Amino acid sequence: MSIDLEPSVRKVLQRINQQLQDQQQVQRKAQQASMQQLQLWCDRHELDTQGCFGHTQVLFDRRMLQTIEQTLSELNLASLDTDLSQTSRLEQGELGDGEYKSVGESPTEKRVLVAQANCGAYFPEWVKTAPSQWVMDIAWSSLQLDDFTHLLVVENRDVFYQYFALHPQRYSLPEDALSALVIYRGDGEESKGCKALREACLVLAKPVIYFGDYDTAGLNFAINGGYTHLLLPTEAELLQRANAVSQDAKQIHLAASVTAFAQQLTVDDPLQTLLLHNTQQQKGLRQQAFQGPLQLLAIKRVTV
């Protein structure tokens, strides 16, 4: 058992502490997991909790909370007054000896990977060959968004790293896709920075382009994720080269959403044909296999 309180127990105690501002006592059911964990913690540190833990109820008063706070202080651990969810790992280190990896800001959640084409003539002397692009790990809020007319989000990391290098060897990008601010979508905590940047661009009415796999998951993410455009091969290319191997059968549960979106588009909307071809034929094409000229397709939504 950890010398510190479990994060879930801390949250419960913080709520109880707030309630005790207006009440003399607060009760919780003794069988709750957080109460059992708290009792074990109190017993381990030999806290005086006489009369607090009963068979069915746990009784809290200000004295008990003060006892817990005093013990946390003696152990050099964060107090209950601290909102750990709003702290970074470095800030947590300044609060005491506790480690709270499951709460607070992760090192990557406010950052994005940005790809830029060759930046002038500057290359460090230890770089043997000038790269086709620079990749920067940067806090999204530090970006000057006025310098870009479009945001382009790349689904797959390997394609992101080769974004500019692939042009024009394998496929050709439209001008807006070449001049856009290009970032990697990310996974897990890494994707939070992408989401924040995407929402900031939407507020500024900037087009936000999704560049990913032509499969049901990728299409569903694009049409339901707040994006305004899709970057895909031409209709002729997709109808000819899309295949069942590139369409994961596990994505079938997403087909209804994509189909419903396609059906509200007009018949002359080029996106409708591509969406329905994917869901009805269950055929896809991996982003890594895209060839030829790529096109920007507007994601038109029906407004009531």
Results as ranks from 00 to 15, higher is better:
M1P: 08
I3E: 07
D4W: 12
D4P: 09
L5Q: 01
E6V: 05
V9L: 06
R10K: 02
Q14I: 05
Q18Y: 14
Q19C: 09
Q19P: 01
Q21D: 08
D22Q: 11
V26E: 04
A30G: 05
M35W: 12
Q39G: 01
Q39D: 14
Q39W: 13
Q39R: 15
H45G: 03
H45L: 07
D48V: 04
G51N: 11
G51M: 01
C52R: 04
Q57P: 10
Q57M: 15
Q57I: 10
D61Y: 12
R63P: 00
L65T: 05
Q66S: 03
T71A: 01
L75Q: 14
T87I: 07
R89D: 02
E91P: 13
Q92T: 10
Q92V: 14
Q92N: 14
Q92H: 13
D97L: 13
G98F: 13
T108R: 12
T108Q: 10
L113R: 09
A117T: 09
E125T: 08
K128W: 14
K128F: 13
T129V: 15
Q133I: 08
Q133H: 10
D137I: 13
A139P: 00
W140D: 01
S141C: 07
L143E: 06
D146P: 09
L151V: 03
L151A: 04
L152T: 09
L152E: 10
N156W: 15
D158A: 08
F160S: 05
F160R: 07
Y163G: 00
Y163W: 08
H167S: 01
Q169H: 15
L173H: 05
P174D: 05
E175R: 12
L178R: 01
S179H: 08
A180S: 15
G186P: 07
C194P: 15
R198Y: 11
E199N: 10
A200W: 10
C201I: 00
L202R: 09
L202Y: 10
I209N: 00
F211A: 09
L219S: 05
F221S: 03
F221E: 00
A222Y: 11
H229L: 00
L232D: 09
L232R: 04
E235A: 02
L238C: 13
L239Q: 10
A242Y: 12
A244K: 13
Q247L: 15
K250E: 13
K250M: 14
K250I: 15
I252G: 01
L254E: 09
A255M: 06
A255C: 06
T259Q: 12
D268E: 13
D269G: 01
P270Q: 03
P270Y: 05
Q272C: 03
Q272P: 04
L274F: 02
H277I: 07
Q280A: 02
Q282P: 14
K283I: 05
K283P: 03
R286S: 04
Q287A: 04
F290T: 08
Q291C: 09
L294A: 05
L297M: 03
A298M: 08
K300L: 12
